[in-house]
Design a protein around this nucleic acid. Sequence first.
DNA 1: TCAGAATCATCAAAGGTTTGATCATTTGGG
DNA 2: CCCAAATGATCAAACCTTTGATGATTCTGA
Lengths: 179, 179
Amino acid sequence: MTHNTAPPSDLTFWSFVDYAVRKAERELPSVDAEAMRMVLTLNRATSMVVYDLESSVHRPRGLTWPGFRVIFALWLAGPMEAKTTAEISGMSRAALSALLNTLERDGLIVRERAEHDRRALQLSLTEAGYGAILGGFRAHNRRESAWAEALEPDERRELVRLLNKLMAGSTTARAKFRS
Amino acid sequence: MTHNTAPPSDLTFWSFVDYAVRKAERELPSVDAEAMRMVLTLNRATSMVVYDLESSVHRPRGLTWPGFRVIFALWLAGPMEAKTTAEISGMSRAALSALLNTLERDGLIVRERAEHDRRALQLSLTEAGYGAILGGFRAHNRRESAWAEALEPDERRELVRLLNKLMAGSTTARAKFRS
DNA sequence: TCAGAATCATCAAAGGTTTGATCATTTGGG
DNA sequence: CCCAAATGATCAAACCTTTGATGATTCTGA
């Protein structure tokens, strides 16, 4: 990569994708520019949505984004083993273990040994945990609505379909998954 | 949220979105289920892609995902101020400041005071920094290609269009941005 | 001109994540 | 039956992120 073209002085979070893809295309003929654009855009969009939800909804209520995900999973699926909680909330068992220390200290969840397997942990929400998710989720969903309004209903469905197809392709792509 | 229905015993990272949306819809009539599904799906897809890229490409080469983003930005846009680097790589100036300690210690970037403004910092890649990104990006882009193959070319373009439209709507949604 | 406001980077404290190791328990094959 | 392998949780070290505060520099308007 040579630097024979000055970057635009007003490079921004938004415009960087376009700039980066064009420059890479120009200087690295072998690059798959469309794949690069797709992954960059996917990351930017998600990053914006998550930052908004976490900073405007959850942090002010004393929850982090990962903390919310765990409470949310326990709320919807009910008491379950730690292994399952980690799986469906998208984190490793080690990360969940560390996160549970905070949630337990704050009185939001309870850790208990599982009956049938004394290695396993059974997780459940406390009353305070329910309280936290009840108010939090309404505010969370209102912000989700605000974001979703940017798209027409059929566009939202199409976006979901494409993302699901992308995820389904992970097998073919031989992607590495969290263990 | 009452627990009158047992969760499927095979709840997984994939199937949880469907399960969660259906259950929320059934028990919270006021929920915007489509918005919920969109945000959940967006997060899962991104999380899978990022985990794969980071764990299969960057960590084995000694870079974290945020570290890669910074090196990548400096590679494409050339030397620039820390403020701009933080902006286009999607992190706060405080987070960048901490991250730069690692990158500088590893000899990948150089921090210098800016000429025109002695508060500002000028960042640039070292030779080692170039080396790291040259090899790393090819592998990165190959994995991006593998992911992108899950979609048809026109589907990839449509996905990018929808994500961009979503981001453009953040203004209307009065989203909170990273300062 | 010159004080107050804005801006840039960094620090500090608290928290979450990764990989790899360890320990207890359970499972499975000989 | 029993020991080796697999499994579930936790620990440890290194790292990145957030919010809010601090110190240094630059800008601005009276």
